[in-house]
Design a protein around this nucleic acid. Structure first.
Length: 230
DNA sequence: CTTGAACAGCAGTCCTACAA
DNA sequence: TTGTAGGACTGCTGTTCAAG
């Protein structure tokens, strides 16, 4: 069997390198592709269309929380995505699970645990820290899912426009960033508004940011879920 | 799906004229 | 001098349609 292909997405070079090490520990034959932004993730997925796994940081340039996860679920449904984040709030972990991630690894987890989680996911299992039983979805989680489905329906170009829109860029600036004309951006924005079921760009930005993760949710204090080795 | 062009509507800015 | 109303202009946004 050929080696595994893994996409490691994290904007922090040091942690990306550590994560790469953990992946190579779990899969010595792995071919690792690194990405440091939401845009780079898109490029990586295009470059390695048959990747076996993607580890995804929630906070990267061009990414608003779970928006990249939602996009990947919609455009690359066969690619398993494991969220790797400093945020350890149980509600965030549950959101990741609800939105289609196959695993969630706190950055505080030791390399062996990260490696074991990766192996579990590649074996077809899931790898989430124990957050306690909570079988029913809250209304907020149901709304999250509906929003994620809409974002998942966006094309790659539309998703890119949405992320730049969320950064506060004007159509002209987005056009410059993407190397197309302003008219093209307008057409994309119209399509985005239609798919997200909103009436203007401000509402679209608000919608995109609903999938963001609040910094205060980073579990630096209080009870943290325990990542247990199988 | 992506891109571009044409068009209409809206909001903000600038300038001018006029009254208090 | 100051404040305000009105018009022209400009920039931005959003829609629609057509072509590749």
């Amino acid at each position: 069997m050929a080696g595994h292909a893994v996409i490691v997405a994290d904007d922090h070079p040091l942690f990306r390198s550590a994560l790469r090490g953990a992946v190579e520990q779990a899969l010595p034959d792995a071919q690792v592709t690194e990405a440091d932004s939401a845009q780079a993730v898109q490029a990586a997925v295009r470059m390695v269309p048959d990747a076996d796994l993607c580890t995804l940081d929630l906070r990267m340039p061009g990414a608003y929380g779970f928006s990249t996860l939602a996009f990947l679920r919609g455009n690359h449904p066969s690619l398993p995505v494991v969220i790797v984040s400093a945020v350890t709030d149980p509600s965030v972990i549950r959101r990741a699970e609800t939105l289609g991630a196959v695993g969630y690894i706190p950055k505080s987890a030791p390399p062996q645990v990260i490696a074991q989680s990766i192996q579990r996911v590649l074996a077809g299992d899931t790898a989430f820290p124990d957050t306690g039983a909570n079988p029913t979805l809250s209304p907020a989680e149901t709304a999250d899912q509906a929003l994620a489905e809409r974002i998942a329906s966006l094309t790659p170009q539309q998703f890119r426009v949405l992320t730049l829109l969320a950064d506060g860029l004007l159509n002209k600036q987005i056009a410059y960033e993407m190397n197309v004309t302003e008219a093209t951006i307008k057409a994309h924005v119209t399509a985005i508004l239609r798919k997200l079921k909103v009436s203007n760009r401000t509402a679209a930005v608000i919608a995109a940011r609903k999938l963001d993760v609040d910094d205060t949710e980073a579990g630096l204090d209080g009870a943290q879920p325990q990542m247990t080795a199988p």
